[in-house]
């Protein structure tokens, strides 16, 4: 699972008011290189939650994203490469996603998060 997917997912357990962003428990991270598309990154920059991406990439052992950003940084190739790497090349292969309110863990096996809710959570 890429961190772009993580940036969309939230915990939807009954009674949880703010299930985003999910925490990350890492057992195994893998990297899969893909070609960088600057236009796509510029488009995504406006849509993603930056802090969630920074925190998620740090839990995955990648600490190269700055806390403070603005759109002028998109002119820097170095910044784009880091953004690209965090958003699309890091994959959570084994571990869990954690509901920020309840601490409930959603297991991630072979890169697939299991977000199914139990009967009493719907």
């Amino acid at each position: 699972m890429r961190l772009l997917t993580h940036n969309m997912l939230s915990s939807n357990i009954k009674g949880v008011t703010n299930g985003f962003p999910l925490g990350i428990v890492v057992e195994k991270v893998i990297e899969k290189p893909v070609e960088m598309n600057p236009d796509f990154l510029k488009n995504m920059f406006a849509k993603i939650e930056w802090k969630a991406l920074v925190d998620a990439s740090r839990s995955m052992g990648y600490a190269e994203l700055p806390d403070q950003v603005d759109s002028s940084m998109l002119d820097s190739v170095e910044f784009l490469q880091r953004f690209h790497h965090a958003l699309l090349e890091l994959h959570l292969e084994e571990g869990a996603l954690v509901c920020p309110e309840t601490g409930r863990k959603f297991p991630v096996n072979k890169g697939i998060p299991n977000m199914l809710l139990h009967e009493d959570e719907v």
Binding site: M1, R2, L4, T5, N7, M8, L9, S10, N12, G19, F20, K32, V34, M44, K47, I48, E49, G111, I112, P113, N114, M115, L116, L117, V122
Partner: peptide, 18 residues
């Protein structure tokens, strides 16, 4: 590359307009 998520669509809540 295909990111997969196991989820009941009725309980899906994707954030934002990604």
């Amino acid at each position: 590359e295909l990111n997969l998520v196991q989820c009941d669509l009725r309980n899906l809540d994707f954030r934002g307009e990604i």
